[in-house]
Simulated scan of single mutants.
Amino acid sequence: MLDPLSEVLALLKPRSYITAGFDAGGDWALELDDLAGRIKCYAVVKGSCWLTMDSDAPVPVPEGSCFVLPTGRTAVIGSAPDVEPVRASAVLDPDRSGEVITYNGGGDVYLVGSRFEAGSPHVELLLRNLPPLMLVKTSDDRARLRWSIELMMEEFREPRPGSALMAQQLARMMLVQALRLYLATPARDDVGWFAALADPRMHAALAAMHADPGRSWTVRGLATLAGMSRSMFAERFRARAGETPIAYLARWRMMLAAERLQHGDDTIARIAGSLGYESEHAFNTAFKRIMGMPPRRYAGLARQNGSSVPGA
């Protein structure tokens, strides 16, 4: 049985699109203008840099840090926050996966990591409430993360048969481990399903909903699993997740339904029943409200467009 993080990542289908090293020197800054629908995960293995998200205050990223950019928001990375950036797409070759890219002479800061394409048409629904920047340290007891980073560096230093594939698989491990470590850090002010997952009591409720999405869950029943009163649980879940438990459950059910409509041969009635809806009409109403169109039309567009549904 998959845990909630594994289930979301499985539905998201992150595919390593570019896995590379990046060696920069001097004064430099790049506007990462290629983030829409993508996730970036990089580790700073030498030197340091700065990250700026839109109009937020610049954030220092020291050596030994790993960062994840999951939401598609514009970001600028550079040697200092006051350096005028150039668009990354204009100066970096997108076809150099598996290599080390040297920029501005190199020598001062070295990063390794990957850019992931999300293979799910639900990417915005899944990522929109994540923190725009997840920053974790790779030092101390974070042996698994350091191990995947060091092996990735080795594949770049000494390319061998299968190195590109090996680097991509290591990048996936690096992404999952970075997300794990971020979940384990002390409480923050983040809001969204990922923030709820980091809360042990909310995690229990989320795990139950994911384990049995078709069950007739009630707020009282979920509160019991969380070891809280109904009112305290409802208030805390909404504060952490940004929506009510029942709204979260309904949205998760619809994403599961959409996946089966795209890639399975179940009837709408069977999907509706397996997800806890007593009638196909009730399911159709919920699906249209959350996904923006009736399930039958969604399935037709998915087949027509190869599983990419415009506007979904």
Rank of each mutant, 00 (worst) to 15 (best):
P200A: 02
L133T: 09
T218R: 11
R73G: 04
L135Y: 00
V44D: 00
P85D: 12
S307A: 13
G276E: 04
P94W: 03
V309L: 08
V176Y: 10
P70Y: 08
L92D: 14
A167E: 06
S79R: 09
F194M: 11
E63M: 13
M209K: 12
H210N: 10
V100M: 13
Y248V: 00
A205D: 02
L11C: 06
S97T: 15
G47K: 06
H281C: 00
L125C: 04
A312N: 02
A250W: 01
M53N: 12
V191C: 05
P58S: 07
R296M: 00
L2I: 09
M173V: 08
H263T: 04
V109P: 00
R146E: 02
Y182P: 04
A241H: 11
V68Q: 11
V83R: 15
P186C: 12
T224R: 13
I268Q: 13
A167K: 09
E155S: 10
A299D: 01
G276F: 07
Y42E: 11
L11F: 04
V123N: 12
M1D: 08
G192P: 01
A36Y: 06
A178W: 04
Y277T: 02
S139N: 12
R172S: 14
H263P: 00
A299W: 00
G21N: 08
P81V: 08
R96M: 14
V91M: 11
S216Q: 14
A226S: 15
G306A: 04
L222W: 13
V176A: 12
